[in-house]
């Protein structure tokens, strides 16, 4: 019944359908980038410096071969955007999963066990929460850069980035899950399980976890949007993914230098792609939150 209600509200909202379609397109593009993109921007053989800085096809000097134009090195913008979105989504997804595992796990334990452990976890969460995610991610990234020798930067940059963004987001999951766990653990079905004699681990996993996952799903959707933005921001600031595998943020950073010389497409098209991706995910998250919240129906 619940599921069909969600489906119904989905079908009635054209904006939601459009954003779902857009998100799916981005995912397909990201997954199958090498097959979808007309060029491989990392294949040096296919790049001709003579094609550098071509405008999009509708402007004078543009060609339909590179319909969104080319960057300063002659790479096809459309292809770099597809590959960039792939990197952005990968980092975003991985960080969200990292946050969920850490946050949901700590939240469940904190809420169910209570006492000193709960106080400790929540105190750490409070302190972390008073610092914006972007600052924490920046800091971790910065520290990792200082600790690791320069030669290793490129290799581990991805993992550092995922760790930095992931760890900056666990608090919200932990707090929400802890709150729901506190409510659920006092519900009579949990007491019934305890009366049967079932142990805490199984109660947490079989009984409580499925009942607290609803809000987690909503947070995860919105968090994916935030993670993508954070990654883009870090890459824009030059401390994100290595320049050899540019994400959308890196592309914008690189293009930003050409803004004043009139080659606006190098930065604006990746920017539009980023906004569309984030907007579509946000719209989905917004809808999901309303659809799962029975009070609003």
């Amino acid at each position: 019944m619940l599921d069909s209600d969600i489906w119904y509200s989905f079908c009635r909202s054209p904006v939601t359908i459009a954003s779902a379609l857009l998100t799916i397109l981005f995912f397909i593009g990201a997954l199958f980038a090498p097959y979808v993109a007309p060029f491989n921007p990392f294949d040096l053989a296919s790049i001709d410096i003579m094609d550098a800085s071509l405008p999009p096809f509708w402007q004078e000097g543009g060609s339909t071969k590179f319909w969104l134009g080319t960057d300063d090195q002659g790479r096809d913008m459309w292809s770099t955007i597809i590959f960039g979105a792939r990197v952005s989504l990968f980092v975003g997804f991985a960080s969200v999963i990292f946050s969920i595992i850490m946050g949901v796990g700590l939240g469940l334990v904190s809420g169910y066990v209570g006492g000193r452990l709960d106080a400790l976890i929540m105190r750490i969460a409070d302190i972390q929460l008073s610092f914006p995610a972007i600052l924490i991610a920046l800091l971790i990234d910065g520290v990792a850069r200082s600790v690791l020798p320069r030669s290793m930067h490129e290799e581990v940059a991805f993992y550092v980035l995922i760790f930095a963004i992931g760890i900056s987001g666990w608090v919200q999951y932990a707090r929400t899950v802890r709150g729901s766990t506190l409510v659920e653990k006092n519900k009579e079905y949990v007491q019934a399980a305890r009366v049967i004699g079932i142990g805490p681990a199984i109660i947490l996993l079989r009984h409580i976890l499925p009942n607290v996952m609803g809000p987690v799903l909503v947070i995860a959707t919105i968090h994916l949007a935030i993670a993508v933005i954070t990654e883009a921001t870090l890459s824009f600031l030059g401390v994100g993914v290595p320049p050899t595998t540019p994400s959308l943020g890196t592309l914008i950073r690189v293009g930003n230098d050409y803004l004043f010389s009139g080659e606006w497409w190098i930065t604006i098209f990746p920017g539009i792609a980023l906004v569309l991706l984030v907007l579509a995910i946000n719209l989905l998250g917004d809808w999901l939150r309303d659809a799962l919240n029975p009070k609003l129906r």
């Binding site: 009579e188 019934a192 004699g197 499925p210 009942n211």
Partner: peptide, 22 residues
């Protein structure tokens, strides 16, 4: 405690929260 737990069971007040909805 398990053998004793088996011999005593409980019925709760709120029919809406005493069963796991999932």
């Amino acid at each position: 405690a398990a053998p004793w737990r088996r011999q005593m069971q409980m019925i709760f007040q709120d029919p809406f929260s005493s069963l796991n909805g999932r």
